[in-house]
Amino acid sequence: MIKTVNMRKIYTTEEVETTALNSVNIEINEKEFVAIMGPSGCGKSTLLNVFGLLDNPTDGEFHFLEQEVSKYSERQRANLRKANIGFVFQSFNLIDELTVYENVELPLLYLGISSNERNKMVTNVLERMQIMHRKDHFPQQLSGGQQQRVAVSRAVVAKPKLILADEPTGNLDSANGEEVMNILTQLNEEGTTIVMVTHSPHDSEFAHRIIHLFDGHVVTENYKEKFHV
């Protein structure tokens, strides 16, 4: 599903050039659950942004769904993204002016799905995430755990092939964190590929494989016993 070949990402500001990713070679298969770990500033988030088609690499190759996409335009990336990728963020990133229902509905709107179909899909996912009773509330009226459940609902509502999670439990207490991890595991078992950035060794236990990054390099890749490619 994802393959990078000698991929580099360099940020250039007026004075300094920072190499965020250096010769990264990673391959992630469908239905995998991968955790990316490493200290602050090691390039985890940059990698996730490239995977999420939010950013282009500076050089090297990046294949997504068998397409070489490293030179795609913003519009091409947007089209590929909205059909195939769901995001879960540490800070939830819900739109404050939209209700729970409307937040979850948003990706479907950009996919141009009909109103009836949307209704079915949103209701489905909200029921599944047990947040249906809150559908007309605004994000600010929910607890952190509830907000993250909404965010996960939004990430999965369009049935993406890939879910990218950036410290999904970072802003949650342990009970709520556990719940989110269980949801992600369940989604993975149903066939969704998951790539998760995390600081938490506990969370990384849920993954099949842990990739350690340091100063923009992949340093180790640990496969769990229960899953081998």
């Binding site: 939010l54 947007a78 089209n79 993204r81 990133n93 404050d96 002016e97 950009y110």
Partner: peptide
Amino acid sequence: AKEVGIRKTLGSNRSQ
């Protein structure tokens, strides 16, 4: 800004 970011992440293009 956040809203714009989220909308773009969810697949909105600039003209939208």
